[in-house]
């Protein structure tokens, strides 16, 4: 049962991933990316990480993909490029070969690195205390500093984005443009 679910989801995941990079239409790419993210959240559920599965849906599907779509909407959907110029059969074969080789190499390397320290995050405990609660306790005790830094990072990100989106930041970019024209 588990294996069937795994292989079906994995196929969906890989196909949607390939779709993202081989699709001409940017909106389609974004939607395929959404599928890809959702299939990953299935894996998270299978891996007993329910909290992160929900976060994955909320953050990636709910925020990031929507953000992509917004930007596409802002810039216009006709920004795609002609994929057929470079996507020939031979190139696709080579790319597939490279992907397979690399994944084999990568996997075997990762497999050799499984001698990590076992924790006390057993399924029994998870069942007893609840997934989100245990993550929360760990997050706000052992990793409190990281949480604070993440908060600061988010703040910086917000400020940065606001600054970039300001209309008068154009002047700076115009200056950069003039400079790059000069060097051309």
């Amino acid at each position: 049962m588990q294996e069937i679910l795994f292989f079906v989801t994995a196929t969906l995941c890989i196909v949607s991933a390939l779709g993202v990079i081989f699709n001409k239409n940017v909106v389609h790419s974004a939607l395929l990316l959404l599928i890809n993210f959702c299939s990953l959240s299935v894996f998270y559920l299978m891996l007993n990480a329910q909290f992160l599965a929900i976060v994955q849906i909320l953050v990636y599907a709910g925020a990031i993909v929507v953000l992509f779509l917004f930007v596409v909407m802002l810039l216009g959907a006709d920004l795609g490029e002609d994929v057929s110029t470079w996507l020939t059969g031979w190139n696709a074969f080579l790319a597939a070969l490279a992907i397979i080789m690399l994944t084999l190499v990568g996997t075997s390397v990762f497999e050799s690195m499984t001698q990590g320290q076992s924790g006390n995050f057993t399924p029994d405990d998870v069942a007893k205390y609840g997934q989100a609660q245990m993550i929360g306790i760990t997050l706000f005790t052992d990793y409190i500093l990281a949480v604070q830094l993440a908060a600061i990072l988010l703040l910086v990100g917000i400020v940065g984005v606001i600054w970039l989106a300001r209309s008068d930041s154009r002047d700076l970019i115009l200056a950069g443009k003039a400079l790059s024209n000069k060097t051309k």
């Binding site: 690399l102 190499v105 390397v109 050799s112």
Partner: peptide, 9 residues
Amino acid sequence: ALLMVGYFF
């Protein structure tokens, strides 16, 4: 990155 992975491999 590949070179590093290759080194470990």
